[in-house]
Design a protein around this nucleic acid. Sequence first.
DNA 1: AAATGTGGCAACCGCCTGCTA
DNA 2: TTAGCAGGCGGTTGCCACATT
Length: 337
Amino acid sequence: MGRSPCCDKNGLKKGPWTPEEDHKLIQYIQLHGPGNWRTLPKNAGLQRCGKSCRLRWTNYLRPDIKRGRFSFDEEETIIQLHSVLGNKWSAIAARLPGRTDNEIKNYWNTHIRKRLLRNGIDPVTHSPRLDLLDLSSLLNSTQFNLSSLLGLQALVNPEVFRLANALLASHNESSPELLLQKLQENNQLLNSPLQNPEGSEMLLQKLQQNQILNAQLQNQPQFFQYQNHQIQEVPNFTTQNVPCSSSLSQPMQLGHVEEPYLMNNGQMIPPLNYGYCNSDASDNSTFQTTNNNSSNQNISLDSVFSTPSTEDEKESYCSNLMKFEIPASLNFDDFIM
DNA sequence: AAATGTGGCAACCGCCTGCTA
DNA sequence: TTAGCAGGCGGTTGCCACATT
């Protein structure tokens, strides 16, 4: 059936709301309460569509709306919830008191999304994307070294780091073309929508192929080279031991899969697509490192990089969310020149 | 100082869902 | 069962302020 317009649009005003209109709407809702949006504009003396009134009220005029910058905690919550819920902005907003879906959506698109991309994270799947780091140019370069990777982004996702490492190994040894092809397949897989036209069986098959590829990558000897320094063999990075405050751990998620909420001390915890840590200010700039002997070692970023400004702190926030493990055998002194 | 580019955000559009008669 | 409707949602647009050239 055809859907009739919510109201007669002839003669109705569009565009930004004036203070007078806001006043009329607020007064009417204070008297009669929200609802009946179709009849509300007429009763309130507004030349507006009912939808427009509802949107104005829910997104801007509602008294319980929180204004101003998003806090670190809010930002972290949004990222975590988005990894589980996807673009369900209303569902995300329901877990952030005082924030509207529209506000969260805008904030995601203008701030968080870009930040994730800069960190080599696909903002749709929350999975690492090597192509975001322009690895083809790295592969084509005869002298790929860690500095170029660090130059792109000092704080990259662990899976990106690991895959880049494996790529280097393969580049030194045999067939980079094959690996590049596999990585492209990997990225296609990561980008494929939930309703994959190839069907779930094909999707599963691709996932298995991908797991095999990852296993092959992890079994290869791993080398890093930094400028003219000695090549160091380093253990494989893993994602299994990333969580900080939660006992929850999962391997990397491939593609977008609906996951149930997990509860931890009454707190909802999303699946971990990459390493999440609590936004505890006390460990804001701390890398957690692990070698194969499971001896953990914390390295303060303050001792590695320059003291962050306020804006830098903000910028590094997502990096903190993507806290990852660095093998203890990696010598950070080599990185500071 | 003017022109142009860019980012942020409020608002709109069209589709979907659930309720009701 | 179905048509009509209200409300909700996500994607997109367009305006405005600020930055850059």
